[in-house]
């Protein structure tokens, strides 16, 4: 492999990290907020797919992709709130409800999304940050969507707010010990409902990125399990919003390895390289889940931890 080949792969990985990471980032941040409050919403794949469909339909009918993004966020909010409401009923298991909502969300999206497969909707514009370079592949890699920056700012905000605000404290307390929260006069169910709705809304926005920017079209095979992977990324990121961003970036970069290696002529074993993100996640999971701090950082009320 020559030096320029290594350069091509590196550029592709940076580009892939920026292009592919955003939906992972939004779903993971949403799930992070939900899990911090002590509840798991496995149904975010449904929010993601429904968000993708609603965003595309919204952009197509109104002509404004940003209205599509807002509508996607709203559709995710509704699904998340429904999950939150059902889970507060007695003896309801949040994991089972999540799986039901995954099917519900994708089913709704497929049903209402039929008329929007063929038309072409206006997409989100990218910010061309690579204009300084004469190399077209660098210029392409640095075509960054505003939602990418929104995600990073959001992660910084969440990281600060969870640690430093009254609201953050309430969410964390609800997640770590429902009994203490109740003793403080906090309505545990209400906090979790709001946290699940907020998380669902972020996942919907993540879906909008899929259909309105990259790959940038609506069809029924659009999400290949990004919503599910992002939920796993939260555990891998140990419930820290900033680590969620890093995990999403890493996952995006790893996903670019397979095609990039084939493009420079390393074509043997592409099945292995295409699986790189999953293999990578598996290894980091094993490594990180073994540590003692992993157990300490998990919200105590999570049904998978208890």
């Amino acid at each position: 492999m020559s030096q320029s080949d290594i350069f091509i792969v590196l550029i592709a990985m940076i580009g892939g990290a920026i292009r592919v990471s955003t939906p992972f980032m939004f779903v993971a941040l949403g799930e992070c907020v939900t899990e911090k409050s002590g509840r798991i919403n496995l149904g975010l794949e449904g929010n993601l797919v429904l968000g993708a469909m609603v965003a595309y339909a919204g952009s197509y009918t109104t002509g404004s992709p940003w209205i599509g993004v807002l509508m996607a966020g709203f559709s995710g909010l509704v699904l998340g709130a429904m999950h939150g409401y059902i889970c507060k009923l007695p003896k309801v298991n949040d994991i089972a409800v999540g799986i039901a909502f995954m099917s519900f969300g994708t089913g709704l999206a497929f049903f209402f999304g039929k008329p929007y497969i063929q038309p072409t909707a206006p997409r989100l514009e990218a910010i061309p940050l690579g204009g300084w370079s004469s190399d077209p592949s660098i210029a392409q890699a640095l075509q960054v969507n505003p939602l990418f920056f929104v995600g990073i700012v959001l992660a910084l905000f969440l990281s600060w707010a969870l640690a430093n605000t009254r609201w953050g404290l309430i969410v964390r307390m609800t997640g770590d010990s429902a009994a203490s929260a109740r003793a403080m006069g906090v309505s545990v169910d209400l906090v979790r409902l709001l946290a699940t709705a907020a998380g669902g809304s972020l996942a919907g926005v993540g879906g909008a990125f899929l259909s309105l920017f990259y790959p940038g079209s609506w069809n029924e095979g659009l999400s290949s399990g990004q919503g599910l992977m992002a939920v796993a990324l939260v555990i891998f990121a140990r419930w820290d919003p900033l680590r969620c961003v890093l995990a999403a970036l890493l996952f995006g970069a790893a996903g670019a390895i397979g095609p990039a290696l084939q493009s420079i002529g390393v074509s043997q074993g592409y099945y292995f390289f295409n699986a790189a993100p999953y293999i990578l996640t598996l290894f980091i999971m094993i490594a990180s889940a073994r540590s003692k701090s992993a157990a300490r950082e998990a919200p105590g009320e999570l049904s998978i931890v208890k």
């Binding site: 790959p215 095979g221 996903g255």
Partner: peptide, 11 residues
């Protein structure tokens, strides 16, 4: 697999 198809086209 739309995302990987887009990545492959870009590559």
């Amino acid at each position: 697999m739309p995302v990987r198809e887009a990545e492959a086209s870009n590559a």
